[in-house]
Simulated scan of single mutants.
Amino acid sequence: MKKSILNLGNALSKVAQKQVKGGTKLTTPGECDAIEGNVPYGCPCKSNWCAPGLRCDTAQQSHLDGICVYS
């Protein structure tokens, strides 16, 4: 039985693990005060403002164009 439990599902990449609810730390307002091109995950953004590896998801509403999420 232990073998069958250990073989369930697939291993998640680090990026996929962070997308699981609770897998990323929430950003505080001070962390969102970043330079264009270096805005962290979960912060409001405009196009091309997000840090490398992130994109501005315009499907999520914010006071700007969207929210920085993993690409």
Results as ranks from 00 to 15, higher is better:
7 N>M: 08
53 G>N: 15
65 D>G: 10
62 S>Q: 12
67 I>H: 00
45 C>S: 02
63 H>L: 15
42 G>K: 00
58 T>R: 14
38 N>K: 09
16 A>N: 00
23 G>D: 05
31 E>T: 04
27 T>Y: 01
34 A>C: 09
66 G>Q: 08
8 L>R: 15
3 K>R: 14
49 W>D: 06
18 K>L: 12
31 E>S: 10
22 G>P: 01
51 A>Q: 12
15 V>W: 06
53 G>D: 10
14 K>D: 14
12 L>M: 09
56 C>V: 02
51 A>V: 03
59 A>G: 11
24 T>M: 13
40 P>A: 02
42 G>I: 01
45 C>F: 01
57 D>G: 05
22 G>R: 04
15 V>Y: 04
30 G>M: 05
56 C>F: 06
46 K>T: 07
53 G>V: 08
66 G>R: 08
38 N>P: 03
14 K>M: 05
8 L>I: 15
28 T>E: 12
22 G>I: 04
42 G>A: 01
26 L>G: 12
25 K>I: 04
26 L>K: 09
9 G>T: 03
61 Q>I: 14
64 L>S: 08
40 P>Q: 03
49 W>S: 00
17 Q>L: 12
39 V>I: 13
36 E>G: 03
40 P>F: 02
19 Q>P: 01
16 A>D: 00
66 G>N: 05
9 G>F: 05
50 C>A: 02
34 A>L: 05
56 C>R: 12
32 C>I: 01
53 G>C: 10
62 S>P: 05
67 I>T: 00
59 A>F: 13
30 G>A: 12
8 L>C: 13
19 Q>M: 08
36 E>D: 02
15 V>P: 12
37 G>V: 08
19 Q>K: 07
16 A>R: 00
34 A>N: 01
62 S>T: 04
34 A>D: 13
17 Q>N: 07
50 C>R: 06
24 T>I: 02
55 R>T: 15
49 W>G: 01
57 D>S: 11
21 K>Y: 03
23 G>K: 03
8 L>P: 15
39 V>W: 03
3 K>A: 11
36 E>V: 02
68 C>N: 06
69 V>H: 15
55 R>G: 08
51 A>C: 03
61 Q>Y: 14
14 K>E: 13
31 E>W: 02
47 S>Y: 11
2 K>C: 01
